[in-house]
Write a protein that binds this DNA or RNA. Sequence first.
RNA 1: UGCCUCAUGGUGUAACGGUAGCACAGCAGUCUCUGGAACUGUUUGCCUAGGUUCAAAUCCUAGUGAGGCAACCA
Length: 574
Amino acid sequence: MSDNERIETGSDTGRHFLKQWIASEVEAGLSGGEVVTRFPPEPNGWLHIGHAKAICIDFGMAQEFNGTCNLRMDDTNPSKESEDYVEAIKRDVHWLGFEWNRFIYASDFFQTMYDIAEGLIRSGHAYVCELSQEEWREYRGVPTRPGTPSPFRDRPADDSLTLFRRMRDGEFAEGACCLRAKIDMASPNIHFRDPVIYRIMRMSHYRAGDKWNVYPMYDFAHPIEDALEGVTHSMCTLEFEVHRPLYDWVVDRMDEMNLLVVRNGAKVRPQQREFARLNLTYTVMSKRRLLQLVEDGLVSGWDDPRMPTIAGLRRRGYTPESIREFCDRIGVSKFESETELELLEYCIRDDLNRRAQRRLAVLDPLKVVIENYPEDKEEWFEAINNPEDPIAGSRQVPFSRELWIERDDFMEDPPKKFFRLAPGREVRLRYACLFTCTSVVKDENGKVIEVRGTYDPLSGGGNAPDGRKVRGTIHWVSARHAQPLEVRLYDRLFTVADPMADESRDFTTLLNPDSMQVVTAQAEPALATAAPGDGFQFERLGYFCADLYDSKHGAAVFNRTTTLKDSWGKANRP
RNA sequence: UGCCUCAUGGUGUAACGGUAGCACAGCAGUCUCUGGAACUGUUUGCCUAGGUUCAAAUCCUAGUGAGGCAACCA
């Protein structure tokens, strides 16, 4: 069991504020004693790691308190939404490891919302306003100045009702009029200055088709959706904090209309609380910007392995467990913070270190010839699959006279602390034998193109026959048996920690030109037949995952999930 | 600018009036057939100023700084 297992002490110690909030409500026996949450994405883009945080909170809180969580498409704006996004969202939530109780569309409630709107008109809480958008902006005022009431504010309910029905029936052009809640034009909270709750959109909805010519606004629709589903705790990000009074206002109206769900004899009043959204260094997180990267062809799609989308991370080789662990570690607070990418990388390394099988592959091959090894001989050495997991067993790796090694693992004129191969130096070829470099072959430009040397025939398996210390161990692949592999070396998407910090600069100019490098690697035979999605550690290099789409049986294509920590490389790079 | 929110090492987060702790990152070391992992040690912090109190990161006041809102988006 993991060492960060939480101990429930009954005190609030160590619980984040949302957990404390829900816990205190549960203790007080509120909301009929059940906890119901919801994750309400708008199907207008793919989910990203920031949504993963919200998903972990929404579903996680429900789990924590033995409640349930609904997945709801917040599809009240037909101009941006589509079924494709719905499918991608469902798949990603599932993949992350969460099961929803109900799957719902906000659009399923359109009729009810409409009826509630008519109710509001009848009770004098709403009116049809014919101000143009510009006029409306003018009347609304600014934060420092109170707004001016619309001339239509006190029109008879019957007039509004008639007009609203005509709006619904498509008798008006978009923008001709709208339905507004009648609240308080002098409120310091702009959202209370008679907010628009229904607007005309002569647009067909991806699910509701052409049935509606009016669509509800978020501030009106969201609390209704929550209330109708019997949601008890509605958690969202900080920017909705100022909307909360309006949320409560709508819930009050529903209460008056007797529309709240009754559970175990108690009315369920949904309540909203807000937490800080996730910001991650070296990437961007807004759907709009991610969409721009996709549409401008700056990445290959929403699921490009460099994207912070859940689909991108999945394709990159991140596991659901690692993402959930990350969400657990970043914490929940109301402070607008910036989480370092390094923490995400730590989480996937930690997970894969324990689970991924090891393989030998060379990304930048340099030929090695073992002069005292017979031309036609070959041996198979035993290689451990995962030193962290004995159950993973071992496999056989072929060895022969000519090998590939990593170019970085050889230096003709090495510095003191270089433990790898150099003329006159002996290293261990992992799992195979001890090898000493005796000479090099260069091309006409003086570049080393071949390393030659001899092996110790008594060092089979890599053990020194006399117990002598060999400091360096390097990976290798038998040239004769090697499988060429396409490998995509991914790096951070942007060159700066916060691509949005400099507002005078278009963030796309800060894209990292080296965020993807494609190389042909030489790998041990077992790797050629990896199944799409399979993840491995290429020893001494990093974690790699067979691409979900481009990798074929016998012609694997690998994506680098992340490198191994490299204390040598880091210290010795300029 | 009006209203709302927030402020603890480089980063993120704990503390709920009583010894400022944890993780990531960093640094140093041990060990090692991965310069990985593991293990050990370690640098760095309560935004400022007042007040309440025996005692303040915690409560109060003011200031400073950061974020949000001012779409017929969500």
